[in-house]
C-alpha cells in the first residue's frame, strides 16, 4: 500500500510542478521568424522578463496548440492576417489599445482594417508581409521561362522543381494561374485547381515546409521553388547570389502576418508592450531579416534601421508594383477550407 501512496504523491508532485511556472514569463505562439535573440533579447532585457516562444506553421497548427492549452496559458499570438477574423470569432484575441500602436507609419496596404477591425474594435496589427510566388536559381533557369506560371504544370516544366507545403497560398497561386482571383475561389473551382496541382506534383521532386524548401533550392536539389519568394531567397543571397524570385504575369499571392494579444492573457499590459516592441523600427528590422525567413516589415520606419543590401534583397523600392500584382491569401470558409485540405492531402499522397 505504501508504494501506491508514494505513487500518488509523485503524481500530485508533477501536477504542482507544472503549475508553478507562471511568474514573469510571457508566452507567445509565433512563426519561426520570431525566435532570434536579435528580436527577443532587447525586450527581455528591458522588462526583465523571459519570453517563452512556441513555433508553429499554419493557422490550423496554432488552433490545435491553443485547444491543447488551458485558458491564460498564452499572451501573444502571431497569425496570418487573413485568419484574424477567424481567431477573433473563436474568442481567442482581445482588443488592442489602438492609440499606442504605430498605425501612421505602416505601409497603407498593411492597415487591412477589414481583417483587423471587428465591430469597431481592433484586434491585431500587421507586422510583416511578403509574397508566395516563384523562387528560382538564375544560373539554371531564365526569368522568361517562368513568366507564365502555367508552364510549371505543363508537360515541359522549365526545370526541376519543389513545392512549398502549405495549401492556402499554393492553391491560391494555382487559382491565380488559372485566372481565378483568390477572393473568388469556390468549391466549383477545386477540380480545375486539383488537376493543375497533380500535374505540378508530377513535375516536382519534393514538397516541403519552410526549411526543406529552402534546403532544396539552396543545395541545388531543385532549380525552382513554387510558392517561394523573398522569404526563401533574400536571406540566402549573401551566400548564393544566383538565387532570385519573380512574380509571374498571372500574379502571385501576398501573405501578411499579424500580431495580437490573447483575450484571456493574465498579463495583457506586458503582452501589449511586446506587440509595441515588435512593431518598433528596431523590432521590425530584426523581424524582417530573421534567420528563419526574411520579408518586408509592415512598418515603413524600419527602413532607416536596415542596410541598403538588406533592402535591395527585399526589393524595398519595388513594393508598389509588387503589391499591385499580388492578391491576398484566399479566405476559405469552413467548408471550402476542409475541401481544400482534402485536395492537399490527395496532392501529398499523389
Amino acid at each position: 500500500m505504501k508504494t501506491t501512496t508514494r505513487l500518488l504523491a509523485v503524481l500530485a508532485g508533477t501536477t504542482l510542478l507544472t503549475q508553478a511556472a507562471a511568474a514573469q514569463e510571457l508566452n507567445a505562439l509565433v512563426w519561426c521568424d520570431h525566435t532570434d535573440d536579435a528580436l527577443i533579447k532587447p525586450f527581455e532585457d528591458k522588462f526583465g522578463v523571459k519570453v517563452n516562444l512556441k513555433e508553429y506553421e499554419g493557422t490550423g497548427a496554432a488552433l490545435s496548440l491553443i485547444e491543447q492549452s488551458q485558458p491564460g496559458d498564452w499572451d501573444v499570438l502571431v497569425v496570418d492576417g487573413i485568419d484574424v477574423p477567424r481567431v477573433v470569432s473563436a474568442g481567442i484575441l482581445g482588443p488592442l489599445p489602438v492609440g499606442d500602436l504605430p498605425y501612421d507609419s505602416l505601409f497603407p496596404e498593411m492597415v487591412m482594417e477589414e481583417n483587423h477591425v471587428i465591430d469597431g474594435q481592433t484586434y491585431a496589427i500587421s507586422e510583416k508581409f511578403g509574397y508566395n510566388t516563384v523562387s528560382f536559381n538564375s544560373a539554371a533557369v531564365s526569368a522568361e521561362d517562368l513568366s507564365d506560371m502555367t508552364a510549371l504544370w505543363s508537360d515541359n516544366a522549365p526545370g526541376s522543381m519543389a513545392v512549398y507545403d502549405y495549401y492556402v497560398p499554393v492553391m491560391g497561386m494555382v487559382a491565380m494561374g488559372l485566372g481565378i482571383p483568390t477572393a473568388d475561389i469556390t468549391l466549383d473551382d477545386l477540380p480545375a485547381i486539383e488537376a493543375a496541382l497533380m500535374k505540378l506534383k508530377d513535375n516536382a521532386s519534393s514538397v516541403g515546409e519552410v526549411v526543406s524548401s529552402q534546403t532544396a533550392i539552396a543545395t541545388g536539389e531543385v532549380d525552382i521553388l513554387f510558392g517561394g519568394g523573398e522569404w526563401v531567397t533574400a536571406g540566402l543571397t549573401g551566400d548564393l547570389p544566383d538565387l532570385d524570385w519573380l512574380i509571374p504575369e498571372q500574379g502571385a499571392v501576398r501573405w501578411s502576418q499579424s500580431i495580437g494579444v490573447f483575450a484571456d492573457s493574465k498579463q495583457p499590459d506586458l503582452a501589449v508592450e511586446f506587440v509595441k516592441h515588435v512593431l518598433s523600427p528596431q523590432g521590425q528590422a530584426a523581424l524582417a531579416t530573421s534567420s528563419c525567413y526574411w520579408a518586408m516589415p509592415a512598418n515603413r520606419m524600419a527602413g532607416a534601421m536596415m542596410t541598403d543590401e538588406q533592402k535591395a534583397a527585399l526589393r524595398w523600392d519595388q513594393q508598389v508594383d509588387y503589391l499591385n500584382k499580388a492578391d491576398l491569401y484566399p479566405t476559405p470558409d469552413a467548408d471550402l477550407d476542409a475541401a481544400m485540405q482534402d485536395v492537399w492531402t490527395r496532392f501529398l499522397a499523389h
Binding site: 508533477t14 501536477t15 510542478l17 507544472t18 503549475q19 485547444e67 491543447q68 492549452s69
Partner: peptide, 12 residues
C-alpha cells in the same frame, strides 16, 4: 491531458 486540464511540461 487535454480532458484532464493538465498543462504540458517536462513532467508530462
Amino acid at each position: 491531458f487535454n480532458l484532464m486540464g493538465q498543462s504540458l511540461s517536462l513532467a508530462t
